[in-house]
């Protein structure tokens, strides 16, 4: 099977598209999932889409090595964030007895 031309040679656009899809999926998870764990996972997806962008720009664009460095930082920060966020989730669960974001709406009042 012969691939069309815009698929034959992977370029910057391909990465960006993948990254955009990944971002959208992450966003969708953050917005629509009711389980807070899933929301956190959505955030991870968004962070990873950003990483993909940084790396892609580093490879094809002008960021050179900086893109890699930033991606590495993001991964580290994502790990830290996951630790903190999971601690928060644990507290939320202790407080509300649930991990459903619909029910954690005290800010309204």
């Amino acid at each position: 099977m012969v691939l069309p031309e815009w698929l034959a040679e992977p370029g910057l656009n391909h990465f960006l598209v993948v990254s955009a899809i990944l971002f959208s999926l992450g966003l969708l998870a953050v917005i629509s999932r009711r389980n807070i764990i899933m929301v956190l996972m959505g955030i991870e997806l968004i962070l990873n889409s950003a990483n993909l962008n940084f790396v892609a720009f580093s490879r094809y664009g002008l960021l050179s090595i900086d893109g890699h460095m930033i991606a590495l930082f993001v991964i580290i920060i994502a790990a830290a964030e996951a630790a903190v966020a999971l601690a928060i989730v644990l507290n939320i669960y202790n407080r509300f007895g649930s991990v459903d974001v619909e029910q954690i709406s005290e800010l309204k009042d």
Binding site: L27, V30, I31, V39, V101, E106, L107, K108
Partner: peptide, 14 residues
């Protein structure tokens, strides 16, 4: 509008 649901805010923001 102020539902208190953070996801709704996020939708607005997006």
């Amino acid at each position: 509008i102020q539902t208190g649901n953070i996801q709704t805010y996020l939708v607005f923001a997006v």
